[in-house]
């Protein structure tokens, strides 16, 4: 992980090229996080790739309910040469949960982004194949959101077909 100074330098470097791309930095327990604007996530990741963080290890969603913007998408980047990691975080509102997909540049993000879409309802624009990955095709709602209740999932019998409850209401 870059230290606190290194993180500020990295943020400054990216911020110089695109002034409103970086919204802030966070250094916690030796782990570095860059808060990025969702619109600029592709260019931020590209700049980090140029800075050596050439491997995207994971993309995952987070629900910050009741904070706003509620949804977060986190990119875990790894520099194999310097053995260093940095995290990029973007936040979006549930009303407009659009984040540009990074799958065209980072093929590994494909499954991760589909999972974040499935579980949190984050829509990744320009994703080549954005559909549910773990939940059934016809499932309604996004189960990993914090206001989605645990349990109470009805067992669907044939006689009950068509009477599914919508938990998003």
């Amino acid at each position: 992980m870059p230290d606190a100074t290194g993180l500020e330098l990295l943020a400054g470097e990216i911020g110089d090229a695109a002034p409103d791309a970086i919204l802030g930095t966070l250094h916690f327990r030796g782990q570095a996080t860059l808060l990025a604007h969702p619109r600029h996530v592709r260019s931020v990741l590209e700049r980090l790739r140029a800075a050596g963080y050439a491997n995207l290890m994971s993309v995952h969603g987070v629900d910050y309910y009741p904070e706003e913007p509620r949804l977060g998408v986190i990119y875990e980047l790894l520099d194999r040469g310097r053995r260093d990691r940095v995290r990029v975080k973007v936040r979006v509102h549930t009303e407009d949960p659009h984040v540009p997909s990074v799958t065209p540049e980072w093929p590994t993000a494909n499954h991760h982004e589909r999972e974040a879409y499935d579980m949190f309802g984050v829509v990744f624009d320009d994703h080549p194949d954005l559909r549910r990955i773990l939940m059934p095709e016809d499932y309604e709602g996004h189960p990993q959101r914090r206001d989605f209740p645990v349990g109470g999932e009805p067992v669907i019998f044939t006689k009950d077909a068509g009477t599914r409850q919508d938990y998003t209401q």
């Binding site: 995952h60 987070v62 629900d63 875990e76 494909n110 499954h111 999972e115």
Partner: peptide, 14 residues
Amino acid sequence: ARVHMRDPSFVNLQ
């Protein structure tokens, strides 16, 4: 508040 496992099989399957 959130637990996520980056599972290698999930990624390797791609």
